[in-house]
Design a protein around this nucleic acid. Structure first.
Length: 776
DNA sequence: CAGTGAGCGAGCTTCCGCTTGACTT
């Protein structure tokens, strides 16, 4: 029997709070939501004012049972879930499900887990905010309506098992739109001119690098400019120095932590979250799912003391940050170390690195601005109107930069360092060592990384801290998006160099377009996005979430009624469902490439039952025509970008390339990549082999290699049964019998097995039914 | 292990946000 039962959302939080409250309080966790809309059926009664049908999911039954019995015995129940929309709803569901008596039920909230904050909260309980609960119900029901009405349309009109939703469909759209921007981008080039001057500095000769702000469009213009510079004199026109300052970034939120951990540590967003979860459970950091940049006053004071201890008063500057991101609900603090005086923690290497990052960011946020001095020198050219400009930057006072430097998406992680200019006065004549004009190309827009997609979603107010990582996983699991590396291409560029009195021209090569761990849309992702854009434009609008959030806010403020809001939404949404179901055609993204010059038949690409394919000839109705020929698209090619040549290539397989030991060898591409077929045996091609050009000699070599490997793989054979053998595979020895494979128990040595032993293992394996793996 | 692309039509798929473990390979 306990006096007071406090219910929070997270068990780690419960543990901490219990310590603050003493023995009269039992603190338990609800593990998030305890009820949800029924998954079977629709879960919302559309004809009955959108009444939600809530059920307790199986994995929450035990939690609910325990809480119910504890609540029954307690004299006061304190509902201490988060102070946002979802938290309020959790409190309300608890009240309903646990059948709490309003007389001894109290709702409390706190933003930080400190003793004072919690005691304050206990002293100022408030009633449940039903308006906020209603706003959550509206959010929940709207998401269910969109997801469970739009997805089935996709099953019928595109492919079964697909999904659509307020958040995921827009996330995919961002990636599809970006890919199209990239495909349509026209690369242009211009000549960038840089000069190196030699300057005397205290007896030494140092270089001064300057650039021409103007770029030349053509090689000829660049050349003409260099010609003009041949006998020119260069005079310093102006030297100006301007002080600037830089301020530290605010403490981490979920989104910024994911971005920085990706840029600085190379973690995927889900990796970051699970490492952060470990740190949180160990009490080393505050809660990791937050949109707030706020720090508790306790944290600010500890940070101040730590900064002063480490670097002195001059480096300390306390700051309160305000959240600017759309739709932030600020139920928690920013992500920070629980104990800011600890610079490092024990744990795995990854935990240590993430902790260190969080520590540095938090500490830096409470440090002084960095003071810099930016110097600009302009240099006149006697024979031309253009001017060279040299810029330098010197850190006068490093401030927070001593600890932390925020990375940027667009460039690789370059540390901020001084660019020091030599001492130069106005009217100085400069000695020019060389001038170079290099052809530079415009860059295509960058593809999203997981982290930059999260950033974009947050900017648009789409998704929540707890869902950023799952969204990224979902759109990949559904096959809409793939995370891939892509090889770059080589290209040539021209450089012109003026040195002494001669201009030298060179053609150089550079690599460009290399992509690492970027998000690419798949063909199905593109087809689904186009289908949804055409039929559900309202939901696909980038501002859709922001617009409905405004209405949720009105409900939360008590200025709108949730059922009415949903009703008016449904009135405009549901007809879209009906209309799209009326469409007779299925969406397959078909694109006609043209006419095959050889057969005169139409060549087209589209999504088929088993993925993207090329089709030669048309599906002419019935008896007259011959059937069209089909071939699957190969990885790396896409419906939207494949060329006629690439498409026709695919019909050249399977290809007979000769014979060996009186049996013919054919080459084809199958489920597992390119392979050779010979004497009813299959041999995969090597990495460097091209199925379209491989010749007989190499094929025979591959066949013989394979034979040798198979030979070595045999550990034991049996006279009684040629179909049962012990083989050495990728994961060690196994039994192969009549095309089935069986695991050998670790307790026995494979060589010692008798034929009878093998039969026994096979027998046993047959009894245990393999559970069918559920596709994720 | 190395295909398929027609059609019939069981029974199933699916959303977003809160939270953690419980599961293989």
């Amino acid at each position: 029997m306990v006096e007071n039962l406090v219910i929070v959302e997270s068990p780690a939080k419960a543990k901490t709070i219990e310590k603050f409250l003493g023995k009269d309080y039992l603190v338990k966790s609800s593990f998030g939501h305890i009820r949800d809309l029924d998954k079977k059926g629709f879960g919302v009664d559309i004809d009955n004012n959108f009444k939600p049908n809530y059920i307790i999911p199986d994995d929450k039954k035990n939690v609910v049972k325990e809480l119910k019995s504890l609540a029954h015995d307690a004299s006061t129940v304190w509902l201490a879930s988060d102070e946002d929309r979802e938290g309020e709803a959790i409190a309300w569901h608890l009240k309903e499900v646990l059948e709490l008596d309003p007389k001894n039920t109290k709702r409390i909230v706190f933003h930080e887990i400190t003793k004072n904050a919690i005691l304050d909260a206990i002293n100022s309980p408030r009633p449940l905010d039903v308006n906020l609960v209603d706003a959550q119900q509206a959010r929940r029901v709207l998401d269910r309506l969109v997801g469970f009405e739009a997805s089935p349309v996709l099953w019928k009109k595109v492919k079964p098992q697909l999904s659509a939703g307020r958040v995921q469909s827009v996330a995919v759209r961002l990636i599809v739109d970006r890919e199209r921007e990239i495909n349509n981008f026209k690369i242009t080039s211009a000549f960038r001119v840089t000069a190196v001057f030699l300057v005397e500095d205290a007896g030494k000769t140092v270089e001064l690098k300057a650039e021409l702000p103007k770029r030349f469009d053509t090689r000829e213009e660049a050349h003409a400019f260099l010609e003009k510079c041949k006998n020119a004199t260069f005079t310093v026109e102006d030297v100006s120095t301007k002080p600037t300052k830089r301020s530290p970034a605010p403490p981490f939120t979920t989104s910024t932590l994911q971005q920085e951990a990706s840029r600085k540590l190379g973690f995927s967003v889900s990796q970051t979250m699970s490492i952060a979860q470990k740190l949180y459970e160990a009490g080393k950091i505050t809660y990791m799912r937050t949109d707030s940049v706020n720090l508790s006053s306790l944290a600010i004071n500890t940070a101040k003391a730590k900064v002063e201890e480490l670097f002195g008063d001059k480096y300390s500057k306390t700051r309160q940050y305000k959240t600017s991101s759309k739709g932030a609900q600020e139920a928690h603090e920013a992500i920070r170390p629980t104990y800011l005086d600890k610079e490092s923690v024990s744990g795995t290497k990854q935990e240590q690195r993430l902790y260190e990052l969080i520590w540095k960011r938090t500490i830096a946020s409470q440090m002084s601005d960095a003071l810099l001095e930016k110097t600009t020198i302009s240099i006149l050219i006697s024979s031309a109107n253009e001017k060279f400009v040299a810029t330098g930057e010197v850190i006068v006072f490093d401030g927070f930069l001593k600890v932390y430097f925020e990375s940027n998406d667009d460039e690789e992680d370059k540390q901020s360092s001084d660019i020091i200019l030599p001492p130069i006065k106005v009217n100085d004549k400069l000695n020019c060592a060389s001038i170079n004009a290099s052809q530079r190309f415009t860059q295509k827009p960058p593809r999203y990384t997981e982290a930059s997609l999260v950033k974009k979603l947050e900017e648009q107010g789409i998704g929540r801290p707890s869902t950023y990582a799952p969204i990224i996983t979902t759109i990949q699991n559904r096959g809409y998006v793939v995370k891939e590396d892509r090889q770059g291409n080589e290209r040539q560029f021209i450089t012109l160099t003026l040195k002494g009195n001669s201009i030298k021209e060179q053609t150089k090569t550079e690599n460009y377009g290399f992509e690492k761990a970027k998000l690419f849309p798949t063909d199905i992702g593109i087809v689904v996005t186009d289908f949804l854009l055409k039929n559900f434009d309202m939901v696909m609008d980038y501002n859709f979430t922001a617009k409905v959030e405004e209405q949720f806010d009105r409900i939360a403020e008590g200025n709108a009624e949730w059922n009415q809001m949903i009703e008016s939404f449904y009135k405009s949404f549901h007809p879209l469902v009906e209309n799209s179901l009326q469409l007779s055609e299925k969406a397959n993204g078909e694109r006609v490439l043209g006419i095959d010059p050889v057969s005169g038949k139409q060549v087209s690409v589209k999504i088929g039952r088993f993925g993207p394919l090329v089709q030669l000839g048309e599906t002419t109705d019935g008896e007259t025509g011959e059937k069209p020929k089909f071939a699957s698209l190969q990885p790396g090619t896409h419906i939207e970008t494949i060329t006629m040549e690439q498409a026709l290539e695919l019909f050249k397989l399977p290809r007979e390339i000769g014979s060996f030991e009186d049996k013919k060898i054919t080459v084809a591409i199958g489920k597992f990549g390119p392979y050779l077929r010979h004497d009813n045996k299959f041999v995969s091609l090597g990495k460097g082999d091209d199925p379209f050009s491989i010749h007989l000699e190499r094929a025979i070599e591959l066949i013989q290699n394979k034979r040798e490997k198979d030979e070595n793989a045999i550990i034991k054979t049996f006279e009684q049964d040629a179909d049962t053998r012990i083989l050495n595979g990728r994961w060690g020895a196994y039994i192969s019998s009549k095309k089935n494979n069986y695991k050998i128990p670790k307790t026995v040595k494979a060589e010692d097995l008798t034929y009878e032993d093998c039969l026994e293992i096979i027998e046993k394996a047959g009894q245990t039914v393999k559970p069918k793996r559920k596709k994720k």
